[in-house]
Design a binder for these strands. Structure first.
Lengths: 223, 223
DNA sequence: TTGGTTCTGTAACAAAGTCACACTCAGGGC
DNA sequence: GCCCTGAGTGTGACTTTGTTACAGAACCAA
């Protein structure tokens, strides 16, 4: 499917620096795909589809333990690019990482071989990839600091506030189980802490839904 | 200080792909430095010296919490390259990461500006940096899995065995405090678990020193 | 209504981290 | 030798977080 050059220019910073030939190859090899909410786009077992240029929607990149415990490493929003969905793109790297849609998502898929060739030909593409990697590394290191150096109430408060910012709403439609999967802990632990938060008047809970009633006080818990 | 081209060829995979001019710039701008054991080469507060090409010795890259708790992210050995000592090299990334020598270390220091220029000029340099970043990212993600998904006895056993492999000796000259700093936990926790290990006959402790007496059984604890 | 599924609450326990303090060992100065 | 000091280790009480095992509540579909 041929993509409009203007659209690609908006989402790929290196677009203008490509030759006409390179632009052509990209336009004719990349495919637009839609993913429904909750789809697992890629796990380490499946083979990798390519680099994902997310045009709309939201992805969650996370780890799973052998026992099924999960933790979110970072998210990819519309306009951003998902490297991991193409971990194979970075030669020699293999992350056992899973990617799931958190909203209905559309993405342009660049085949692995095409992107690798571009990286070899263009310093702009290579350095763009570099910058992406650095930013993901920063994310993961930040997460490591949070997990190791922050108490759980602080992490949970931060998560609720972040989620509220993403949804642009004080009311979050999430189960305790889902929160636990994001934070790398157990559902019971989340329920317990949310119970404290509610008795403190920070939130109000109902089935499958949490409302932040005292944002500032919740914010005060962070870090 | 002018470095021998043969030596640089061994340690920098992209050396052969540079132009003569580029090689010349590198040779004349890079500096050899020696660091004594225990030196903190770079913290986020100081300004960054440049990219470190470690020719001999051993570095530890780690995080520190506000309360002084530490965890080792990964190590850099002789023949490897330390990106973080030049976190500034990757534009836009800032990791609050510390680097310390674990042995007497010698390294070639490439100034930030020189390396950035090379990345812009050469796809080989850019893609080499890419590969480095990917491998560090893999390290950190692996660490995240260990921290979140493994029990402490397993992590401690793995650490002792790894350390023993590095030192090529069943006897480790480390204090419990040092082990705790590597694993991101408290000294008491390490002492407690080492106590169990000793009563199980896996190790023998003496002041500042641990000897692995039953490697296979220790290995059985891992993961 | 009934039955099933999902979501939440709770209690008891285990594992790991924190805090406070005491003891031991090694080395230096006398 | 002695004493002093500081680093290294041991230990117990306690807190926080994770685990296990249920029970009850809310929702949905037949």
């Amino acid at each position: 499917m041929k993509q409009s050059a203007r659209r690609l220019d908006e989402v790929l910073p290196f677009w203008r620096d490509l030759t006409v030939d390179q632009q052509g190859v990209l336009q004719f090899t990349m495919i637009e795909r839609r993913f429904r909410l909750g789809t697992t786009i890629q796990s380490d077992s499946e083979d990798c589809p390519g680099l994902l240029v997310v045009t709309a929607g939201q992805l969650r990149v996370f780890l799973i333990s052998p026992t099924g415990k999960e933790i979110t490493l970072y998210r990819v929003f519309g306009g951003e690019i998902c490297l991991f969905s193409a971990s194979c793109i970075i030669r020699g790297a293999n992350f056992d990482v899973y990617v799931q849609t958190e909203r209905e998502t559309t993405a342009l898929v660049i085949p692995t071989s095409v992107y690798q060739e571009l990286m070899d030909q263009s310093t702009c593409v290579a350095n763009f990839t570099n910058m992406l990697m650095a930013s993901r590394l920063t994310n993961v290191i930040q997460l490591m600091e949070d997990v190791l150096f922050s108490s759980f109430d602080s992490r949970l408060a931060a998560f609720l506030l972040e989620q509220s910012a993403i949804e642009r709403s004080a009311t979050l439609r999430m189960t305790h189980e889902q929160i636990a999967r994001n934070l790398g802990t157990a559902r019971e632990v989340v329920s317990r802490m949310l119970g404290y938060f509610q008795t403190e008047g920070l939130i109000v809970m109902s089935r499958g839904c949490i409302t932040i009633t005292n944002g500032p006080k919740l914010r005060a818990l962070v870090q």
